[in-house]
Amino acid sequence: MSEAIPAETVLDVKNLQTVFFTNSGLFRAVDDVSFSVRRGETLAIVGESGCGKSVSALSIMRLVPDPPGRIVGGSVTLEGTDLLKLDDAAMRSIRGNRISMIFQEPMTSLNPVMRIGDQIIEAVRLHQKVSSKEAWKQAVDMLRLVRIPEPERRAQEYPHQLSGGMRQRAMIAMALACRPALLIADEPTTALDVTIQAQILALIVDLQQRLGTGLILITHDLGVVAQTAQRVIVMYAGKKIEEATVESLFETPLHPYTRGLMASIPAVPSPDAKEDVRLVEIPGMVPSLTRLPPGCAFAPRCKLAVDRCRQEYPPLDEVKSNHWAACWRAGEIAEAS
């Protein structure tokens, strides 16, 4: 637990455990998850609905609704400080300052009755003592930075006067106005069209690299992951089941779930392909977190499952250099591929 954290590491999450107490019982939404993010790096978190991606992000922000949720273990170290040990006031001054978050639906985090410019000013002035004139200028500059046309005019407008893509850009402007060390983007482009999505992703990555911000990108779109992240973690039923560099993950996915996911996604037909290959299905359905099977949670859907998988949970092993997987058969898979 006491290894030194490399200097350039912005965020270091260790053995995070977040549980929910509900009518149908207690369940671990995030179960012993560890990862880190370096300056200027993009870490993608993928996995299907309900696997714990958003709860991981909310845990870092200490925004898990309590009740019914609670962080019950682990540490979240941001620039050397364990956020889980801070009092509420100290945490508030970190949020929107050292960490910012972009949500899927911009309307939920934009104030509908406040002009866009004023909202960005709030973010700027929360942590920077500047005159209101200077703050307004900075707000307009931020809108220009995120390539909103006519930023002077747009700053005067209210959220409903902007298109979906523009709102998302305004939210990015707000999130970056305080120059955070870490930006968490939870499905930032899912609600947008592909041409707008491509613009927004290019924009986030460009700004993030220029400002040296660490980025956690939560998405279910493997295409987005391949095109934007350097490292990826794959989650399934609350656990991290694989971690690798993007290159290694896409070249040799080691966990059967990741492999199934990649095979089940249709590709845009390549110009020379004349025949359609049948999609590979992952049979069965996502298990309920309140009724997880013993052993590997993927076992009921896994073609490679053996008896051991149904009894013992596989440890997360470094199967190849810098490539971890939690699967009893990952070694065999690595050798075969």
Partner: peptide, 25 residues
């Protein structure tokens, strides 16, 4: 053409030669 170029390809080696379009619908 812009639509096709905007689809992120699930292959980190396939860097797109992007004729991205700007602006909103």
């Amino acid at each position: 053409q812009a639509l096709l170029a905007s689809v992120p390809i699930a292959d980190p080696k396939a860097k797109r030669a992007a004729p991205l379009i700007d602006g909103d619908v």
